[in-house]
Write a protein that binds this DNA or RNA. Structure first.
Length: 219
DNA sequence: ACCCAGGTGGCCC
DNA sequence: GGGCCACATGGG
């Protein structure tokens, strides 16, 4: 696909779904907490967990590091995998506190260096790291998730087993390196995945058809 | 009673 | 280095 073609897809999605206003959060730290909690989980459940953490006053690295594991687990219970996620939140909070004093403004390094640091934290994989970089730090990193894959694979634009880095490159090598664009584009792609490009698809109304006349949705 | 949701790490071969 | 598996709640 040509770069200008992908930009037209973006315009079409924006016209269809409107601005998505991601990431819904009150602070960059809350974005990072949400990025962990939303792993394979519906966002509505994450909202409940974040409300619990806020009510307990734990939405800062300083407070979170001092919280007992079982207390955190109980608070994040609505988001599922609550034992796993309590450990992941605490390992992230410990790293963030010790490495950066719990201050997002201290994360000034090169994007790829920061990415490597994040990936070294237990419970932070590629999507979570990239979500933090883009939505908490405003770095131009395109986020890849299950929706992104599904839409691309269905339209035959990528193989089903394409690794994360390849899916990411698909967007980054065709788009200007612009964090605002990546922000909105990823969110719109999720909107598309939730709407017509569901597991049980309604491809007859897929807005991509107008931009990709040579592509036929596979399912 | 199913299926799905803004993944990740461990273990196996 | 890929293929399974556990992890768990809440909504359709």
């Amino acid at each position: 696909m040509e770069p200008d073609q992908l930009m037209r897809v973006y315009e079409r999605l924006l016209a269809r779904f409107g601005p998505q206003k991601w990431w819904p959060a009150r602070s960059p730290f809350e974005v990072m907490v949400g990025a962990v909690l939303t792993q394979n989980t519906a966002w509505t459940n994450v909202e409940k967990a974040i409300r619990n953490l806020r009510a307990a006053g734990l939405l800062s690295a300083r407070k979170l590091v001092g919280a007992p594991r079982d207390v955190v687990a109980e608070l994040v219970r609505p988001s599922g995998y609550y034992n796993v996620k309590a450990d992941r939140l605490l390992s992230f909070a410990r790293w963030f506190w010790e490495r950066y004093g719990g201050r997002v403004s201290a994360m000034r390094g090169a994007t790829q260096e920061l990415r490597a640091e994040l990936l070294a934290v237990r419970g932070i994989g590629e999507e979570t790291a990239d979500s933090m970089l883009l939505y908490a730090l405003g770095r131009p990193v395109f986020v890849v998730d299950a929706y992104t894959r599904r839409v691309l694979v269905r339209h035959g634009l990528l193989g089903a087993k394409a690794p994360y880095s390849e899916v990411q490159r698909f967007f980054e090598e065709r788009l200007p390196r612009d964090a605002s664009l990546y922000n909105e584009f990823h969110a719109l792609w999720v909107a598309l995945g939730k709407d017509v490009c569901r597991p049980s698809p309604r491809c007859e109304v897929c807005p991509l058809r107008e931009c990709l006349p040579d592509r036929v949705c596979a399912t």
